[in-house]
């Protein structure tokens, strides 16, 4: 069984069908890109996967812990980088020692060491995104769900974040990443292209080239 299995999932908001009969599996260590224009249904599908909203139909099976990084940074601006990491580590039920060890690993991996004692509100947006990513992986999740993580970032920061995602997936974590940057599709093993709530193409980036500009 795959870590993530989505079968015929549908979600409606009033008369609008945001996600319509969608099926998708994500294998272990696989990066699946979810592409589509704004309003295509990517975020709704992700929110159902994270159990933040219930589907109206279909079935979602998730094997393992989920790490989630949403469109907003989801960081507490008044706290320092270190305090944010400790706070979310504690919420995931990690011991102080484990959090300290993870913080050390993540900080050196993401080069966050020099910002640890800086308040998040004074952090540049690229580093905020790195911190957001580090919080999503603080509890070593088996599944990583990233909702438009590169949105609003400059090309250098985008490249750095993709490097982190790829290296994290290599350790065996399944990754679902939504984006509206079509060039980012080529960083994924497979891509699912969504349009008006449907997956209109699913496969390797090269196989879906006709849908990618």
């Amino acid at each position: 069984m795959n870590p993530v299995e989505i079968h015929n999932v549908t979600k409606r908001f009033g008369s609008l069908t945001a996600v319509d009969n969608v099926s998708l599996n994500i294998g272990k260590g696989e990066i699946v890109g979810l592409l589509g224009a704004n309003g295509a249904g990517k975020t709704t599908l992700i929110r159902m996967l994270c159990s933040l909203i219930k589907p109206d139909g279909g079935d979602i099976q998730v094997e393992g812990r989920i790490g989630y990084m949403c469109q907003a940074y989801s960081l507490i601006p008044e706290l320092t980088v270190h305090e944010n990491i400790v706070f979310y580590g504690a919420l995931y039920g990690l011991d102080k020692e484990v959090v300290a060890r993870r913080e050390e690993q993540i900080a050196s991996l993401l080069q966050l060491d020099r910002y640890l004692n800086r308040q998040v509100k004074h952090l540049p947006s690229g580093w905020r995104q790195s911190l957001s990513f580090s919080i999503a992986i603080i509890h070593t999740p088996e599944i990583l769900i990233l909702d438009e993580p590169t949105s609003g970032l400059d090309s250098l920061s985008r490249r750095r974040l993709w490097k982190m995602i790829t290296s994290y997936a290599e350790s065996g974590t399944s990754v679902l990443v939504s984006t509206h940057y079509q060039d980012e599709a080529y960083n994924c093993g497979r891509v699912a292209i969504m349009n008006t709530g449907h997956i209109i193409a699913l496969g390797a980036p090269n196989d879906c080239r006709e849908y990618l500009c």
């Binding site: 989920i66 949403c70 469109q71 989801s74 960081l75 979310y88 919420l91 995931y92 039920g93 919080i135």
Partner: peptide, 14 residues
């Protein structure tokens, strides 16, 4: 809610 931290907290066992 505005910052998105509420949503992230809902993703934890809290």
């Amino acid at each position: 809610k505005d910052q998105g931290t509420y949503k992230l907290m809902r993703m934890t066992p809290l």
